[in-house]
Design a binder for these strands. Structure first.
Length: 113
DNA sequence: GTTATGACGCCGT
DNA sequence: AACGGCGCCATAA
């Protein structure tokens, strides 16, 4: 693996690290913010391999529909939801989240759901 | 080099 | 709204 590729991974982590507590983003947006438009799947792959106990707020990344991409019944899925709720993020009955997306600058104010 | 496989996303039906 | 199909990008087999 070239350093380009590990840089790509680290760039993704770096972007995710910027998502403030209580806010969320999407795989696609993270990819774009990392300068990797269209590489949404790579964001998921990068988050999947995070070491245990990482400080990267991986749980703040949702899919474009505003829902968890992790199976809701899985251990990590429940962990993700619990962490989000502990940050004040609330969910609808359908599983979509009710919070604003973290985006570029102040322009991020759209409601997801 | 080819073919699966995914924490994805968009569009048409 | 739900589903399926296809594109996308990197890895693994």
């Amino acid at each position: 693996m070239t350093d380009q590729q590990s840089n790509r991974r680290e760039r993704i982590w770096q972007v995710v690290a910027l998502i403030p507590r209580g806010r969320v983003s999407t795989y696609g947006d993270v990819a774009r913010m990392a300068g990797l438009p269209g590489a949404a799947r790579q964001v998921g792959a990068a988050l999947r391999i995070l070491p245990r106990g990482t400080r990267i707020p991986w749980h703040r990344v949702l899919n474009a529909s505003g829902r968890l991409s992790l199976p809701a019944d899985s251990a990590s899925g429940r962990r993700q939801r619990a962490r989000l709720e502990s940050e004040g993020v609330s969910f609808r009955d359908n599983g979509s989240v009710e919070l604003r997306r973290f985006g570029w600058d102040g322009s991020a104010g759209s409601t997801l759901g």
